[in-house]
Design a protein around this nucleic acid. Structure first.
Lengths: 119, 119
DNA sequence: CTAAACTGTGGACTATACTCCATAGTCAAG
DNA sequence: CTTGACTATGGAGTATAGTCCACAGTTTAG
């Protein structure tokens, strides 16, 4: 698919998609169009962009997300290296969840106190 | 305490502290020092900076963090307003946790597959 | 065939969150 | 009483993550 279609399907602007391609976060093949070249995106890119958005919402930087996504699918890296990286990412994720739990409890306590006051 | 002490206690650079004060994320009282004025920070600011860092790690913007922190302590706002805000923040937090769970499962699956391959 | 809707490139511009620097006043130890 | 470590201010510079725009070639519907 061309950029417009990808844009509609993912909700990203064309500029953002071009930016992501420029920094190597997503890839595209090329299709000749006269003197010019149009970029062809595939289905997996939609999936990838979905994961990028997840990562972004959680405060990962684009570089970190690229690393993460590339490591996951990188068969050339020795398996024990991959295991190490994924283990450390898991720890990171668990830490984030811990922090969220703290905040959640804080908010929930505040909320129930307020609700008591009101009723 | 003055900025140097706060800096050491929180790990933030003096510049960052000044920046946070400038945008109203933290506050300071003022102490005369000849023709100049030195900023005095208190103990609660350390606690506040700790919370700011938590928020940052989770991908909240400084403006969002400021809103969050100010809403929590804002007694002048009607209680039902406070309840609404906290409820929506709670939903946000729960959504983030959901996303983290997805990522965690993904990573864990990848990991166990890799570990099987190796053993 | 041509106009509308698409495509790409390059570059300027924006917001966020700092970081660095020069300049200058303040304070405390020796 | 001076020197070194502190303080503040203003402004420039950096990295990240886009956004906007002008210009120009391409495709497609009427």
């Amino acid at each position: 698919m061309l950029i417009g279609e990808l844009s509609k399907k993912t909700g990203l602007s064309k500029d953002t998609i071009r930016f992501y391609e420029k920094i190597g976060l997503i890839t595209a093949s090329e299709r000749k169009a006269g003197k010019r070249i149009y970029k062809e995106f595939n289905q997996e890119t939609i999936e990838r962009i979905f994961m990028i958005n997840q990562g972004k919402k959680l405060g990962f930087k684009l570089k970190e997300i690229r690393l993460l996504l590339d490591e996951w699918g990188n068969a050339s890296m020795p398996k024990h290296e991959q295991i190490k990286i994924i283990e450390s990412k898991l720890e990171e994720v668990e830490e984030k969840m811990q922090q969220l739990t703290t905040i959640k409890n804080y908010l929930a306590a505040k909320l129930s106190k307020l609700q008591e006051d009101v009723s």
